[in-house]
Design a protein around this nucleic acid. Sequence first.
RNA 1: GUCCUGAUAGCUCAAUGGAUAGAGCUCUAGCCUUCUAAGCUAGUGAUGAAGGUUCGAUUCCUUCUCGGGACACCA
Length: 617
Amino acid sequence: MNYAWDAIVNHVARKISEAAEITVTSADLVAPPKPELGDLAFGCFVLAKSQGKSPADIAVALTEKLNAHTKDHLIASVTAAGPYVNVTLKAGEVISRIVQDVERDKNSYGASEDGEKKKVMLEYANQNTHKEVHVGHARVFVLGASVAKLLQRNGWSVITAGYHGDIGAHVAKCLWLFVRQAASVIPQPVEKKKKGVEPAKPMNPDEWAQFVLTHLDAEMAKAMLEKIPADERTGKYLGKMYSESTKVLEENPEWKDEVSDVQRKLEAKDAGWDVIWQETRRWSMDEFAHIYEDLRMNIDKTYVESDMVAEGQAMVDELVKKGVAKESQGAMVVDLEAEKLGVFLVRKSDGTSLYSTKDLALAFRKIKDYPDLSRSLVMIDLRQSLYFKQLFQTLKMMGMKQDLQMVGFEFVTLKNGAMSSREGNIVTLQSFRDEVVAVAKTETATRHPDWPQGKIEHVSWCLAMAGIKYGMLKQDTEKIIVFDLEKALSFDGDTGPYIQYAATRLASILKKADWKPETGLKEGDLSLLKEQTERRLALQIAALPRDIRRAGAELKPSVIAQWCFGMAQRTNDFYRDVKVIDGEPELKAPRLRLIASALSTLIIGLDLLGITVPEEM
RNA sequence: GUCCUGAUAGCUCAAUGGAUAGAGCUCUAGCCUUCUAAGCUAGUGAUGAAGGUUCGAUUCCUUCUCGGGACACCA
């Protein structure tokens, strides 16, 4: 896409090149720190060095030269300020060109073709089954969803993926306690009385629980599952079971053998245990689907660990055959000391699989499913950096050619320490989400007592999602987020709803003026717009395309979040300073066009963050 | 011990090597017969320490201090 702003900057760079008699490119031009100083600035430091004069003197001389040429169709004035030459552009010309870009490109404004339509997979929904989904997961959910959109807007063909730990020690621990506790609901079989034989003595609860653990069949499993009320069939319930189990096992280590037994039975698809596993796993997966829907995440492909075990083990065998992996202390490892990555454990000494075993299989499975994949991204907690370096190195040694990249992000912690299931201070995503929605509903109902319930519900959801998502995205991915519920429930200042509010104010003006693009775009002379706030609004619009490219290249949604906030601030400045409907009549039509462009651009920016704008709020 | 990462205002965060380091929250004082006050205006206040590179350093390099994390059978 060609943007007027780039052409304008190039034009100014050319003018300065001519005057300074050296090559000045658009990259040499910066924005002055204060808008009053101008729109573009050139620092004379390089010239100072080559000419042996002070940069301030050169700036003065250069400014005189530029002004001598006079009458440029884009440049209004040139002034020297210290070592800088500041250029102020003709507001009407600039606004006019920028707005026409938006009117031309409509919804595709800001799109780039950097990705060249190549296929990239972004794996980001990686939470485990049989555990609660908490606010920490919310960060990677909204980050991943946003990065996927950023890549798309930059011309990539994106496949989003989820990968779930649905098997392994944590599942065994959870289900072991589940069955142990549920045993009491299964009636002990009553021995038929035979003549002359005493009835079997009923077992005590502990004996019975142990009996059930070893003799669990499909019938018993179904009976147990039926007793769980519908509202407890959640990840939260299973997560609680898991953390309780961990605690119980710490206090009673003699039960660990029972858990190992459970894990073996799960892996062997033992009939009774498989029934329990399938059903509880479904609770988690249903919950995931529900959360994805609520957050408007779009996951194209779902993988699960239980599917990768056999393949992964086969790959380890192959690695051993090729001499890449070798036995060490009973386990299988890949020696990566040469790359200074230590040793990479790919199989446990008891022969069972590890996370790494399954990840090797997953990487190849992705390529099998999408042979034209040119880039494979995994968005994951930064704490796994070393692990992923090891994994990628091993995959390269196995001949993988794709561009593998880990996109790291820091975790979410609470004000008084990290979340820990043991300490019971986990904030589940569901409860957090419900609280934000409740606050939004109260606020909305107070402001609009005349609105029907359905409208209040919908707008509240929009606001709550914006609050949650913006709060997670505005900060750099490499910084820990200190989660503060009170702040997360606030909609003032640098928040999602503040930005939505700015957008709805613009929409409200357009609605009141009964503005329609079919007719409105043909009316008015944009070059009449000269107010400072109008120019700054237009310049912010013009900044979106390059911010989209930067955010896409660096995989940083925070760049877009910052742009959106700036846009909201410029919008509120405009709203304060300029009257549209009751202002100067000849400026009404062009101002409406500026507003329409500002609104549609802001909607594009917010959409990249996964945020929608309600019609009113 | 080795490696990675962070340190900016009372709090939470910004700042492609450039001008007087910006916001938001909090606090104080104002602004709703004027396109939605989830807003706007004004005030207070900061680069962990010491060196180095550079015309110029919050940014790059070195050392130190203090956090966080990783470093073989968890994921």
